[in-house]
Design a protein around this nucleic acid. Structure first.
Lengths: 337, 337
DNA sequence: CGCCACTGTCGAAGCGCTTCGACACGTCTT
DNA sequence: AAGACGTGTCGAAGCGCTTCGACAGTGGCG
């Protein structure tokens, strides 16, 4: 291991000078700087992370807490995680991966030990038990998601309420009157993960304004569950012509089942999805959908965090505006209805 | 921030005693230990990670390098990553998330700075440019995947060669003679990611022994690509009755297209997949499949790494034996053929 | 009864870096 | 020409922990 002192000696300067060359916190003459940089190169010097963290009380690490659940929206989570890692690196930070499993203890551990300078939490529940800790600590944090009480917190999320509204507006404009919503698995609602409920709220209140009828059914993914759900929907509301799907694992089963039942998409039935673009374009029918901007969410979260770490921080709720892309799965309501 | 010294004072012992209570590296009388532990509790002490790393030259962090690509086998990657994080915690380590993007530089950075004690690399290519660095450094590492030259390396992977063989054996036993293999996207082969080629090798050589004919076609995911691929397969080999699919994004399109063409699964055509269990059970036909034991791979990688870090390490190639689960997508070849 | 080995505790020396104040110059002002 | 200032560099003091050697005290043994 090459140390700072060795570099200093090799370059004929003091250790502090090398440190200042590295950090840029004091001005250094061009000549000295070059000499030091050459020595660093030649010796293959890498600053020791531990020593640096100890001396500066900064680890240059951001902790990212991802949900452990393997049962839902995995690609979105993965995409966010990768976006976080990539943006963090671009700002000179590394990312520590924590699983949701550890819960509040992980927050305590990481902030207490100075392992990370800041945290990003994903999969935030409406009344998340980690939030009180975040409010107490003076380490910056950003949530991806939107809890009920946001005082003192910074959040980044898609505006799911507007998303729900946007979906029904689209269907309403096409003349659909009876809408069915295929939601996430029941467990997601029971956990009070905000985004599912917010979508529903936005969707319902806009529907009321537009005079649409809405039937909401949570649904585990897969064919069997979807078949059951679909049967019950048409049982209860035979006139249903519009579907809003917010469950990646239900998208393909729904399309297959509709096809099987002789209901053509989009001639007889329109489908609007809330999902990542990739899912929308790879489905058997190219889906009209509000895309979940996973990458942007990750990027924005990091940018806010870095801003806070550098002092020019701001408590803020960032709700990304949803964008609906019309593709092949939605069309005018059949005139008969 | 509460420090070790403060705990020591509060408990009426020296700092080193507190340290030994924490690490267990020297024996401490029951009375003293309890007093110290109570002080730790009362003061809410958390050891400073940086100081610890500096003094002990151990960060208790394992770096995990995940592929940046968002185009393939995402759920598998995610599952491995989560399994790594969970197992690592169980052994007292945290996980640093690196993206493949940074390439060899990340390896240099992390090992050089002592940020992590060891690394796990995913998505290893046959002739990966990170390997020379790993061989040079004295920090332990484990690959998930299998490069061409494994000297001096520890690898954990599914035995994809045996996997390929197992798939055709199953089909052969059912009387199928003409097999088509739907592979990963062409890019995966071009990158020389070992697993795809190894599956193919195992599959081909066993087919030769069993007297089967094999047609291999890489395939991007999605319906359009799959439709094209499928048409060409039946064009070239109209008698094809067995499919082996190693591409999550092609599974559902394949099933849908077969259905659409009036080919019943498993009566007319059998399908064997190589995919995680979840995909196999959630598909529109419950798939006969060799499952990819993502969790076990992650767990085993961590266990090997920890063993190395604790000294009783061993260079070793761990190839997990594939297991084929028969479900509803495979059956006897149609007698006509 | 005295010696040895063991057990439990302490003090001190770092680990490699950052950062503060000091200081020696050279430059600009009056 | 003398003071005021700015610039570039250095030395030293930690940051909070681990770990080594030292050393009392205790008990077992011959």
């Amino acid at each position: 291991m090459v140390t700072l002192a060795e570099v200093a000696q090799h370059a004929g300067v003091s250790a502090s000078t090398v440190s200042y060359v590295l950090s840029g916190k004091r001005s250094i003459s061009a000549g000295t700087r070059q000499r030091v940089e050459r020595s660093i190169q030649e010796l293959g010097y890498h600053p020791n992370a531990g020593a640096r963290a100890l001396a500066s009380s900064r680890s240059n690490i951001i902790a990212l807490m991802v949900p452990l659940r393997r049962d839902m929206y995995v690609p979105v989570m993965m995409e966010i995680a990768i976006a976080v890692a990539t943006s963090a690196r671009a700002h000179g930070y590394d990312v520590l991966l924590l699983t949701g499993e550890e819960g509040p203890d992980a927050v305590r551990r990481v902030t207490g030990s100075g392992l990370a300078d800041a945290m990003i939490l994903m999969d935030v529940e409406l009344d998340d038990e980690r939030l009180p800790l975040l409010r107490q600590t003076d380490r910056p944090s950003v949530l991806i998601g939107l809890p009920t009480d946001t005082t003192g917190l910074t959040c980044v999320d898609l505006d799911f309420s507007a998303t729900g509204a946007l979906c029904v507006e689209h269907l309403a404009a096409l003349g659909h009157r009876d809408i069915a919503v295929i939601g996430e698995a029941p467990a997601v609602y029971e956990r009070h993960t905000g985004f599912a409920e917010r979508t529903l709220d936005g969707l319902r209140s806009r529907s009321r304004e537009l005079g649409l009828r809405v039937l909401h059914r949570p649904c585990e993914g897969g064919y069997d569950a979807m078949a059951l759900t679909l049967a019950r929907i048409f049982d209860e509301r035979p006139g249903t012509t519009g579907f809003v799907v917010q469950n990646e694992n239900a998208v393909e089963p729904l399309l297959a089942l509709l096809r099987q039942q002789g209901r053509a998409v989009p001639e007889d039935v329109s489908v609007v999805a809330v999902c990542p673009d990739q899912v929308a374009t790879q489905a058997s029918v190219r889906l009209t959908a509000v895309s979940i901007p996973a990458q942007e969410m990750g990027r924005r979260a990091v940018e806010h965090l870095v801003a806070k770490l550098e002092g020019h921080g701001d408590e803020e709720i960032v709700l990304l505006a949803p964008r609906l892309t019309v593709r092949a799965s939605s069309g005018p309501a059949p005139s008969g209805s």
